Simulated scan of single mutants.
Amino acid sequence: MNAEQLLRRRVYGAGHNSPGPRPGRCYAELVGGPLDGMLLDITGWTHDEVGAGVALAAELGQLGVGSRVRYTPRPGEPAWFDWAGYSP
């Protein structure tokens, strides 16, 4: 992916009018599930925090309002977080 394509990507938690990824920040791509293709800002996260993965709020949760979508880092490739399912 070239720099121009990266800058057009949406960042999880940023507003719809957000300019996209910012220089000097570190991002992981969310792969699969309802947030597929979005970027997650992991700037400043420790190795352990990245390794634990995340549970993110999603508008389209299978378990209804308030449910979360789980993503875990891909083994050996922490810049990719794979969808791991839903949690209440």
Rank of each mutant, 00 (worst) to 15 (best):
M1E: 09
M1H: 04
N2Q: 13
N2D: 15
A3T: 14
A3R: 15
E4M: 10
Q5C: 06
L6S: 10
L7S: 14
R8L: 14
R9W: 01
R10W: 02
R10I: 01
R10C: 03
V11F: 11
V11I: 12
V11Y: 11
Y12F: 15
A14R: 07
A14K: 04
A14D: 14
G15E: 12
G15D: 14
G15L: 11
H16S: 10
G20Q: 05
P21L: 06
R22W: 01
P23Q: 10
G24S: 05
R25V: 00
C26D: 03
Y27N: 01
Y27Q: 01
E29G: 01
L30D: 02
L30N: 03
G32Q: 02
G32E: 03
G33N: 05
G33W: 08
P34N: 03
P34D: 08
D36P: 00
D36L: 01
G37M: 02
G37D: 02
M38F: 05
L40V: 01
I42V: 15
G44S: 05
W45R: 09
W45Q: 06
W45M: 12
T46W: 06
T46Q: 05
H47Y: 07
H47T: 13
D48T: 10
D48K: 11
D48I: 01
E49G: 06
E49T: 08
V50H: 03
G51H: 09
V54E: 08
A55R: 12
A55S: 13
A55G: 03
L56D: 12
L56R: 11
A57K: 07
A57N: 09
A58K: 04
E59W: 13
G61S: 15
Q62Y: 10
Q62W: 09
L63H: 14
L63E: 13
G64D: 13
G64F: 14
V65G: 02
G66C: 11
G66H: 10
S67T: 15
S67C: 15
R68G: 06
R68M: 11
V69T: 14
R70Q: 09
R70I: 13
T72A: 13
T72N: 08
P73F: 12
P73A: 12
P75Y: 09
P75K: 11
P75S: 13
G76K: 06
P78Q: 08
P78L: 08
A79Q: 10
A79F: 06
F81L: 11
D82T: 07
D82A: 09
Y86V: 07
Y86M: 08
Y86P: 00
P88I: 00
